[in-house]
Design a protein around this nucleic acid. Structure first.
Lengths: 173, 173
DNA sequence: CTAATCATGTAACTGGTTACATGATTGT
DNA sequence: ACAATCATGTAACCAGTTACATGATTAG
């Protein structure tokens, strides 16, 4: 069900084509919360239209069809967001999994993985803060989806970097 | 493939039965990195035995079979942990997804969700710090899997709480 | 004119969840 | 004796990925 509400949420911000939704997943939200490929997006959009939660609002070049959320769609999204935040909170994060399995390695190898993690996360953090800077310059409104997502990402990455430093001390000591 | 290496990682720490592995997934690692149910664990364990990465080391009451990692298994795990940390880093986290879609709600509803999140994360954080305290008392060795996982969790939760406070200001302002 | 990108769709397969099913052991 | 928990397994279903497939438009 998550994909369905992720699509509704993105369309609540602004209408998009399936193609565009795939790219929007890739930016920010995809690195921290959810992602989807076009082969999943198109059938789900069709189902949402069938359920009256989404409508086609424009047809453009190359068969492009822009979809918009309906008021029924907004209502469905709202009750999902306000309801049961505790249920089915399964998490899948291969990156974090690797960190959790570090203790299976000897000290030298474990520190090597931590070094790689640090380099990677530092680079991601730089990209994200640059994107944030760009948003400020473009006048993205406070409280918008991308703004919330970027700030969450920055804070998560910083916490990860601090954990890496802590873990290094823990493994070496 | 992640499940396979998650199992190898858990078995690298100590031998376990399938039943026990399911519970070990639920503790810590399941909330932040990966989880699995027994219907997935048993077939995968059988495949790991078939591939020589795991062996049955003991048979106990009620058909219990303890599995241990082999040296081939350790080698497979090691090369996975040291290899390509960047590839296929798809993330699925419904909890975070909800936070990213907040901007679809009006201010009142969004703040309500943030309040619920804060309560939930605060409670989880308390449980986790209690578990950490217990580990210290039980003399869990530094750098062990559960220790690394718990500290990662604490830091992630704290970062989330700080983000919630920030987001509230952003939405209300 | 031609390469890159935009844009959509389906099919086969893999991974993961839920439901069904059974039985042994332990603690009270 | 009974309930709780330990312990394993399979089948049906749903979600997600990869591969296959096609064609229009735009920029250089």
């Amino acid at each position: 069900m998550s994909l369905r509400f992720a699509l509704l949420g993105l369309l609540a911000e602004r209408p998009s084509s399936g193609y565009e939704l795939e790219r929007r997943f890739a930016e920010g939200i995809g690195s921290f919360a959810w992602s989807a490929s076009h082969s999943q997006i198109y059938p789900e959009l069709a189902r949402l239209v069938g359920d009256g939660l989404v409508v086609v609002v424009a047809e453009g070049a190359r068969g492009r069809r822009d979809h918009a959320i309906t008021s029924a769609g907004r209502e469905a999204l709202r009750s999902w967001l306000l309801g049961a935040p505790d249920s089915t909170r399964t998490v899948r994060n291969e990156f974090v999994l690797r960190l959790f399995l570090l203790s299976a390695l000897d000290r030298r190898d474990a520190v090597r993985v931590l070094d790689g993690t640090e380099r990677f996360v530092t680079a991601e953090l730089a990209t994200l803060t640059a994107a944030q800077q760009e948003m400020v310059e473009e006048g993205v409104p406070p409280g918008s989806g991308p703004e919330l997502a970027a700030e969450f990402g920055v804070r998560s990455y910083r916490a990860t970097l601090e954990w890496v430093a802590w873990a290094r001390g823990r493994l070496e000591g």
